[in-house]
């Protein structure tokens, strides 16, 4: 893989013809002297380096589990040092996972729309191969099932163990994982390190249009000491909308 520094989108590393979008000014027109070019060779230079040159279809990459565990551990300590109480640590872990979840909604669904992925891992642009986008999930249950299966598969190489709807309240659902992967080396503490995964779920659901609040809890069972329940509480408005739009 090309060793490129990831440039923030807000800086201009290479000067190319044409300017970027400036939100304080507004839209710019395609300039007359560059837009009438009919052949692709003339006109302005289209950069193919940078993030736009990468493929969106991932190769199956493996990362060392211990490296990951150390990284996660330092994240937890970092947050622990900068927080005053347990709640705050959990919130910060949540927010760390939140941005991941926001991206997952988009990228995983997009990848599902691309047919025949195996041959495309080197292609610059795969959008041309899509005939129909996969249908957007509109129902709570569909989305949760997607998380339970596909997202978990993507993150932890296996689906989660259970998806349950609470019988008491209609806006509460639970996903259960018997052996949560990312915190498997962390001893039981008062801090819920799985808040990180909660953040991922929360970001995923928020972005997909189901605002919610996710927390994790230890519920031990025989043989599974780290068994965690992720409690998803949707906004009441989400449930109302679901009923309204039958």
């Amino acid at each position: 893989m090309a060793e490129q520094i990831i440039n923030p989108s807000t800086t201009h590393s290479t000067k190319v013809a044409g300017q970027g979008y400036d939100y304080t000014i507004g839209p710019t027109q395609t300039l007359p002297n560059t837009s009438t070019a009919t052949t692709s060779g003339t006109g302005f230079v289209v950069p193919t380096t940078g993030i736009y040159g990468q493929s969106l279809i991932s190769k199956e990459k493996q990362v060392s589990l211990s490296a990951y565990a150390f990284l996660f551990q330092s994240i937890v300590s970092y947050h622990r040092d900068s927080s005053k109480n347990v709640q705050e640590i959990e919130r910060k872990l949540n927010s760390s996972g939140y941005t991941i979840g926001m991206r997952l909604t988009e990228i995983l669904n997009f990848r599902d729309s691309v047919p025949n992925k195996t041959g495309l891992t080197n292609m610059d642009s795969v959008a041309g191969t899509i005939t129909n986008m996969k249908r957007r999930n509109l129902k709570i249950l569909e989305t949760l099932q997607y998380i339970h299966l596909t997202v978990w598969q993507y993150l932890f190489s296996r689906p989660s163990n259970d998806l349950v709807k609470s019988s008491e309240r209609d806006n509460e659902y639970m996903i259960i994982d018997n052996e949560p992967t990312i915190s498997q080396f962390i001893q039981h503490t008062s801090v819920q390190c799985e808040s990180f995964t909660c953040g991922i779920i929360e970001g995923f659901l928020d972005m997909a249009g189901f605002p919610c609040h996710v927390t994790s809890h230890f519920v031990e069972e025989t043989g599974f000491s780290n068994r965690t329940v992720y409690l998803i509480q949707f906004d009441k408005a989400v449930v109302e909308r679901e009923n309204l739009r039958q």
Binding site: I6, S9, T10, Y21, D22, I51, Y52, S125, G128, I130
Partner: peptide, 30 residues
Amino acid sequence: YEVYELYLKTLMNPFYKVNDPISNSAFDSK
């Protein structure tokens, strides 16, 4: 579809936050 792909690539940049304006000139040219 094509613009969506470009948007996704922008989104995958960890320094890009959702709802930020996309001011990258490469995006614009593409």
